[in-house]
Design a binder for these strands. Structure first.
Length: 297
DNA sequence: AAGCAACACAACCGCCTTTCG
DNA sequence: TCGAAAGGCGGTTGTGTTGCT
């Protein structure tokens, strides 16, 4: 009997009609009693599935289709260091973001980092093909790492507004973020702080050093980096050299304002402007420096 | 044009916690 | 107090898209 019920249960992508039914149900009864949607014969979906659909896609004021802003990225990094993989908790600090969003963002970020480190290990033994990402770009020898635009962006703007220390301010008002976004969209250049891995919030947090199960560095990468003379490289993997918390944490965000701008799929140019996500701003072949120990970091 | 890799995202699965009779 | 059902959450997987060779 149960098997028959399970067979009848629909899976896979949601259709617009199903969404409509679900929205109507929530409008009438509120976001609860998910299992009653099925028991009433409205949808052949599990209560779990209905809830997930609502929370991740149909809930009002979601930033669906929007890339993570620099501010959001930094917040996630900071909160992940603080809370670990508590995505639902972290998501409460980000308006319009779901735990799934945060989770996906983080996992792709970790994958990217792992791949870069893995490639760096490969590069030590074999020539590496040119970066796909930086094809056509004139990648200069790296004298000193600068942070991606992600870092320092909103922080700087907020600092300007408050004329105080450089901290992430709570989302008690959306005005600060709106202002920061507006300024960043208008192309205001912000001063970069000299950067090393030791100052990367992700890398420098002591919590991170204890979370290596979460960040799957390849063993060969660890060995490779451990051999490097540059102590900053070691900071990535070993005990963090800088234990100072760089940013104050924002406060949880519960009331969701109207949907945001800065959405993807606007135009290609916008997309390129937007491409300031954390690792994107590192030259993908930055680890080529590993090949030449004479070059200073 | 085809093939491939990287990426983003939606959705499912399984475990744990909470609620309720 | 206990057990079943529902809900919540983190991990994982599948799929479509994009950009490059």
């Amino acid at each position: 009997m149960e098997a028959v019920k399970k067979e009848e249960m629909k899976k896979g992508p949601w259709k617009a009609e199903e969404d409509e039914v679900l929205i109507n149900h929530v409008n009438r009864y509120g976001p609860r009693d998910w299992s009653s949607i099925r028991s009433k014969g409205l949808l052949q979906r599990t209560g779990k599935s209905c809830r997930l659909r609502w929370v991740n896609k149909l809930r009002p004021n979601l930033k669906s289709g929007c890339k993570f802003s620099a501010e959001e990225e930094r917040t996630v990094i900071e909160l992940q260091a603080e809370f670990g993989n508590k995505w639902a908790r972290i998501a409460t600090y980000l308006r319009g973001r779901t735990d799934n969003d945060v989770k996906n963002f983080w996992s792709s970020r970790v994958k990217r980092l792992a791949r870069i480190l893995h490639n760096s290990s490969d590069a030590s033994t074999s020539p590496k093909p040119p970066s796909r990402r930086n094809k056509g770009q004139n990648v200069k020898p790296i004298q000193c790492f600068y942070p991606p635009q992600s870092f320092g962006l909103v922080e700087e703007e907020v600092t300007t507004a408050s004329s105080s220390s450089s901290k992430i301010l709570p989302y008690s008002s959306s005005d600060q973020v709106d202002e920061a976004l507006r300024l960043s969209e208008s192309g205001i250049k912000l001063e970069h702080q000299p950067f090393s891995f030791g100052t990367d919030p992700l890398m420098s947090e002591p919590h991170i050093a204890n979370q290596q199960a979460t960040i799957p560095f390849y063993p060969e990468s660890r060995e490779l980096l451990a051999r490097l003379d540059n102590p900053y490289y070691y900071d990535i993997l070993g005990p963090a050299g800088c234990s100072e918390t760089l940013f104050a944490l924002p406060q949880p965000f519960f009331e969701l304002p109207p949907a945001e701008r800065r959405c993807r799929h606007v135009s290609k140019d916008d997309e390129e402007e937007e491409a300031d996500v954390f690792l994107d701003d590192f030259p993908a072949d930055m680890f080529d420096q590993v090949d030449d120990p004479n070059q200073s970091p």
